[in-house]
Simulated assay, not measured.
Amino acid sequence: MFNILAATAVLIVHFGFIVFVLFGGLLALRRRWLAVIHLPAAAWGILVEASGAGCPLTSLENTLRTRAGMARYEGDFLQRWLLWLIYPEGLTRNVQFALAGIVILFNVLIYLWVFKRRKR
């Protein structure tokens, strides 16, 4: 039971991290100090996508699922939808490069806005 709960918790944290990587720069509009946390997180997300290296959270989740005797990427409704978002079908190297580019572009635009607002 512990491994099932732990795997689900890792999945939720993983999803939250992805959302933070994409949109965390928006939090810097209100709390500028969050940029210190967000920029390394965004860099990590870009590195993982661009290099094709596996995310340690994915490895941890799969290990916990295996220990729990669960089939990979199956589960209840919440898990199924989160997994679909995190591990889409057809995830190729070109798609990973495109995702890394989206993260870079989106965050550059956000931080340009943050710094422009800061100058005012």
Score class of each variant (00 low, 15 high):
101 G>P: 08
54 G>R: 15
66 T>I: 13
76 D>K: 10
44 W>C: 04
43 A>G: 08
86 I>K: 08
74 E>F: 08
66 T>W: 01
61 E>P: 00
43 A>P: 03
91 L>V: 07
7 A>P: 09
116 K>N: 14
39 L>W: 12
91 L>F: 11
65 R>S: 02
22 L>H: 09
36 V>A: 15
21 V>R: 05
28 A>C: 14
96 Q>V: 00
118 R>T: 01
50 A>S: 15
26 L>S: 01
70 M>N: 14
98 A>H: 15
77 F>S: 13
14 H>K: 03
79 Q>T: 09
30 R>Q: 02
48 V>A: 11
88 P>L: 04
33 W>T: 10
74 E>Q: 09
33 W>F: 13
51 S>V: 02
104 I>G: 01
41 A>N: 05
106 F>T: 10
54 G>A: 11
92 T>I: 00
1 M>P: 03
14 H>P: 07
91 L>T: 05
50 A>Y: 08
44 W>K: 05
47 L>F: 14
63 T>K: 02
79 Q>K: 12
75 G>Q: 05
27 L>N: 10
17 F>H: 10
58 T>C: 07
45 G>H: 01
106 F>C: 04
88 P>Y: 08
110 I>E: 07
44 W>R: 02
93 R>K: 04
59 S>V: 08
68 A>Y: 06
53 A>M: 08
87 Y>T: 00
14 H>M: 10
42 A>C: 11
67 R>L: 14
27 L>Y: 05
120 R>C: 00
41 A>Y: 10
19 V>Y: 13
69 G>C: 07
11 L>A: 13
106 F>L: 12
96 Q>R: 15
112 L>D: 06
90 G>A: 04
69 G>I: 01
116 K>T: 07
31 R>C: 11
110 I>S: 04
34 L>S: 04
100 A>F: 05
110 I>K: 06
38 H>T: 00
99 L>E: 10
64 L>A: 01
32 R>K: 11
90 G>P: 02
68 A>K: 07
99 L>N: 10
14 H>F: 12
79 Q>I: 01
86 I>A: 11
36 V>W: 15
115 F>P: 00
